[in-house]
Write a protein that binds this DNA or RNA. Structure first.
Lengths: 337, 337
DNA sequence: AATAGTAATGCAAATGTTTTCATAACTGCG
DNA sequence: CGCAGTTATGAAAACATTTGCATTACTATT
């Protein structure tokens, strides 16, 4: 009801104590007499006082926020990660400052700056590949920073994620072992996306290692069911049809599966399809999708732990590799030669 | 390289001007001589100075953050909304403080408080149904607040969204017009979810209005493809099979479709399936899903506009109804009596 | 060359907290 | 009842900025 927002001074006056005592009653309740605490609490409630974290923050007190910068929010890949990261982080009282850059490393730099202006206590980025400006900025400000989703031993900052090269390799080996040689790789644009690039690399290496000179038809398509569906429809219309379609992620694979359903091409009898990611829904797809599981929830949760540890203890963080795992379900089968 | 973080004073010293001038050079560049501005800029760059928004915020300057509190992040429904809201909001320089409460109105209240502590410039919640504490808090702090996703004329706060009752009604009318009488409603838990509740209500009303006494079998299932698949499998095993399965949202419908594919039941010849939402992917599903489009992107974008308008001009905001739209695709057909 | 007018800068107060240090108010003990 | 030892509170400085007002430095005009 008060028109001017209540501050700690108003509360102090109302409770007939000094501002210091009010502050203490919030931050070190054990230091203030229960009876005065009661009085203060009543005043707080009556005035609708809410602490001002901005004012605390300029005392070097932590802001209680963690910056999370992702390429996109709406595209299933990261949604699970964001959710679990956010959940875990919230448990320790932090709040997430979220932003997305649409795979532009320049925007990512700008967003990082903005987060730093807000004095986030820590900052998390997706993937290992970032503008050198971004790395410099982070180093210079010495804000705890963490790289999510991808993993590499020699990452320039601590990271928590799966080795995407290995994920691609896993699929490649599986496909090659099944005897496939004419393979279509349906991948998202590789630019600014180290995860996809590494998966493709792993895939190619594995196929090469396991079976002479394969014939990999690479096909870039935006990240969506619709685009993948279209791409695969075109692919199957070509004279030299692939016997296997390996997709850069599960969403693309769903598109592929729909395209094949539409064309009446049977999976896996006539063509094998694989994804990467093992998103919600892949298991229950009909037919169930063979894929490589990237443990998004675990990554998010562990990353949150690592991050809060970095923030509260000043210790430098350990990178953490959550291994990808090949999940063979119903969409892959030996090549019908 | 400096170990202590540079503040405006350090910059001032380095540029041989007063702190005031540095501040002005940031906030009112036109008031400071180009040559001194140059000097300041150089100092800023050299010291790696980054403005401290916390310190600005206590001057009554806006914090530049908007709180967004959603039930869940990872479950496709809201991902698109969050993305478009975030994109639009970012364009005007704001950053999003995100949190999710898992459909608990109590947690929502707590999160709202937390956002207020961070002095967000505005706050957005999902749906119309909130704890009375939450409403009081918002009213008392007179922070601009906006309700997203759902729409009602008599909403207690300005809202931007679709009328979910109408969405349900649209589907119900469609189903009834097709002659379906034995209908299964596969919905998410209604508790703490006014959107789902209203959809169901609209559905029931429409069916009742259009065709005698229908036989609606209601079935609550958690929000996931897997659960819906399971639920529908059970449903179809019952002696009195429904001729239509209307799902509370598209994800549930996907699960239903997979279940039916598995059982070899043909859609829409043997059974009709519908969703609500028209998420990414529904259009390209095979068969393409009949659903009601809730324009998530538009809602996010318009909501962001409304919100920033509320913040910058102090004017009270107008609610905005983005109408749901029936989208008939390939999963619905007349009841085969 | 003096003056008025404007442009650029600096000083100091203010913002809403926390925290150190000092002081005041209580205990219990002899 | 006086004293040491706690326990509870207050005063004031500090935090990193912004801003109103005062001052200084220019520019143009006569």
């Amino acid at each position: 009801m008060t028109d001017k927002k209540a501050d700690i001074l108003a509360v102090a006056k109302a409770a007939r104590v000094s501002p210091s005592t009010v502050s203490r009653s919030f931050n070190h309740p054990d230091l203030v007499k229960p009876s005065t605490r009661k009085r203060i609490d009543r005043a707080v409630r009556r005035l609708g006082y809410i602490r001002n974290r901005a004012a605390q923050t300029i005392h070097g007190i932590r802001s209680g926020t963690i910056g999370l910068i992702v390429p996109t929010i709406d595209q299933a890949i990261f949604a699970e990660l964001i959710q679990s990261f956010s959940d875990a982080v919230e448990e320790t009282g932090f709040t997430i400052l979220l932003a997305s850059h649409g795979y532009s490393l320049d925007r990512e730099y700008a967003l990082t700056r903005k987060m730093l202006e807000h004095r986030v206590d820590g900052i998390a980025l997706i993937g290992l590949d970032h503008a050198s400006d971004t790395y410099e900025l982070l180093a210079q400000q010495n804000t705890p920073a963490l790289l999510l989703w991808n993993y590499a031993e020699d990452a320039p900052l601590p990271c928590v994620g799966s080795d995407n090269y290995r994920a691609g390799h896993l699929i490649g080996a599986h496909i090659a072992a099944l005897g496939h040689r004419r393979i279509a790789a349906v991948f998202p644009p590789l630019h600014g996306n180290d995860r996809a690039a590494q998966r493709l690399e792993g895939l190619t290496d594995a196929v090469l290692a396991n079976g002479g000179t394969p014939d990999i038809l690479q096909r870039e398509t935006p990240y969506s069911v619709a685009d993948a569906k279209q791409a695969v429809a075109e692919l199957m219309a070509s004279p030299r049809r692939p016997t296997a379609i390996v997709c850069g992620n599960d969403v693309l694979a769903w598109g592929a599966l729909h395209a094949l359903a539409r064309l009446g091409i049977s999976v896996p009898d006539q063509v094998t399809v694989t994804g990467i990611g093992d998103f919600h829904g892949s298991q229950d797809f009909e037919p169930a999708l063979t894929t490589v599981r990237i443990p998004a929830r675990a990554i998010g949760a562990r990353a949150a732990q690592t991050m809060t540890a970095m923030i509260t203890t000043e210790a430098p963080a350990q990178s953490l590799a959550l291994p990808p795992e090949l999940i063979i379900r119903a969409t892959s089968a030996p090549a019908s030669t």
